[in-house]
Design a protein around this nucleic acid. Structure first.
Lengths: 344, 344
DNA sequence: CTGAAAGCGCTTACAG
DNA sequence: CTGAAAGCGCTTACAG
């Protein structure tokens, strides 16, 4: 035994000598019902402690007002913020939010997506796992006419809504800022180039240098430095160059930037005077390091809200040709002490 | 129009000239079905791209394999970790996880809980909002025989499962550590005493002092210092005492401890030599401040896993008299430089 | 092992 | 405005 019997609309109908359909109409606030009857039903329902069975209602109506989310990790600053923003919107609309994490594994992601499809959710929101694999599972979502919204890390080939940070823009602004602060040899810590977000950041770096007439030097671009440890390692090597950089843009993450800072501190290289440091993401800790770290805010909570609003707006005026729109969230440079050697 | 027609078991049955019930048996891997028939059904189902309608199945079976979670904020380090741990377990069991945030508001919490009750979820996991209110909504959950598991911030009067950090133990160990490091006047930053977690931490502080024969001095206990700003303010006042403390235990949070550290740094008071500082929660930033901050780890991911396991274990051997068990997660002191003035 | 039937708790055309 | 009936897509006793 688990549940005790819940009151159903039949229980109410019987008590009031009404038809179940009338009870249903009263509860759903239909206009095809007498005001007095409605009041009576509502009163009785409250007395009998009635709660609608959402599963039955959804089955009959053929839709499930829930949004499913699949992210690599729930407890990562960026993702938990996106989810928080999304929840805000979905809750307001009376929608549920079901959450899965892929742990960066493709197989886990597939399982999660399939579970959501079985639930007949009205929308799936996803940021794909780092582990590569086919995207049949996502194609399946589209085939079933379930809305699919990709964000941040997306499968580019797939024609779906995409909500992205304008990574090129963010990187571009960071590098322009460094140039304006008088840095002349700006190194780049790159992320894995299979992920488009890292390719775009590299493009932004190059665009800024070109615009200001600086050379693009391969010796100053360091591949695959997307953890604190790899950032530190990259920094050690870069600073050992015959002609070392005077600024390092850790385009991968603030964690990499933290690795840069630690190496600089250990070597007694003063920041920002001799070495400028810029990260990416505006993790909370960047504010409290010494010196505080310049970085790029991605407006993650706002991004979550945008995703939610996109879904609900599209539900209203559904236009097939509008299915592949890309929404860009414009990131913002947060200037802090690690790059500030001129007064602003 | 939203969804196109999905294949149902009737479509499969028709194609194979079978009864729907046989198709159902084959798909649910029943033993009351011929092996050949089963293989044929499975093959055909795959060809026809069949996906079970979870709503129909759940409705018929009278249960919904999902767990609902209500927390003050999804994007808070502690809570997102608990959710991550919980998701790990629920996913393994093929359960869904539905998430609501109360934003610390009682009314929002009530709405969230009711939505989950309507869904007929099999378990609700909750950490209550700071805003006080009645707990009729939680009583309602129990009345409907839905399992209720409270964690961290709980309604003590309510007889439910509770998963708690052993806050008294954590605080006790921190203060003992401070005493062993030679600190003699240890101040306490308290949280709001309406919340039991903060009362318990105070008890741990007092117990440690008593055990070592130290006086309990009200001048060294500072109420309501649970943000960085309030922590800083408290520190300024404490250090202005005629006989100031030589250590401050910010029992409320690491953020308060950060406030303490900043005031100490600004006043040129060396940490840990002249002032020991200990926080609570092991936020990521405590590792990277200068000096790094001693704190208490709450094993939040592990706590989430414990909650999940509790639910699934109890489902099996359901014993009414075991319904009010309390599980304590033992916290762990993380010793860092902010309190380390002796070699260990 | 297979089929026919009932029913989970709703909603919604269809009559009146 | 109200009722009787059908049906959403499954599962599961009940016969055979």
């Amino acid at each position: 035994m688990k549940r005790q019997k819940r009151t159903t609309i039949y229980d109410i109908a019987q008590k009031l000598s009404l038809a179940a359909s009338s009870v249903s109409r009263a509860l759903s606030d239909s206009n095809k019902i007498n005001a007095e009857t409605k009041a009576l039903v509502l009163k009785t329902a409250a007395e009998m402690n009635y709660q609608q069975n959402a599963m039955a209602s959804n089955l009959r109506k053929g839709n499930n007002p829930t949004i499913g989310v699949v992210v690599p990790r729930i407890n990562q600053y960026f993702f938990s913020n996106v989810i928080a923003g999304l929840e805000e919107v979905t809750f307001k609309q009376g929608y549920n939010l079901v959450i899965c994490q892929s742990n960066e594994l493709h197989a886990r992601e597939v399982e999660g997506v399939n579970a959501l499809v079985n639930q007949n959710v009205s929308c799936i929101v996803i940021s794909i796992a780092a582990e590569k694999g086919s995207f049949d599972h996502l194609q399946q979502v589209l085939d079933r006419n379930i809305q699919l919204i990709q964000f941040d890390r997306v499968v580019e080939e797939l024609e779906t809504f995409k909500v992205l940070n304008n990574n090129k823009q963010g990187a571009y602004e960071a590098v322009v800022h460094l140039i304006e602060q008088g840095y002349r040899r700006i190194a780049l810590l790159e992320g894995p180039q299979e992920l488009h977000i890292f390719r775009e950041r590299k493009e932004g770096y190059i665009a800024a240098l070109q615009e200001y007439g600086f050379p693009i030097l391969s010796e100053l671009m360091y591949a695959n430095a997307w953890t604190k440890e790899l950032g530190a390692q990259a920094t050690t090597q870069l600073l050992d160059l015959p002609n070392p950089p005077d600024a390092i843009f850790a385009s991968t993450s603030d964690f990499a930037a933290l690795g840069v800072l630690e190496v600089a501190n250990n070597k007694g290289i003063p920041t920002p005077e001799a070495l400028g440091i810029c990260g990416y993401s505006n993790e909370p800790f960047t504010e409290i390091t010494s010196p505080s770290i310049t970085t790029i805010d991605q407006f993650s909570v706002e991004m979550g809200r945008k995703i939610g609003n996109l879904h609900f707006r599209e539900m209203e005026n559904f236009s097939p040709e509008g299915k592949t729109k890309t929404l860009n969230v414009r990131p913002k440079l947060i200037v802090r002490n690690s790059t500030l050697r001129k007064l602003q």
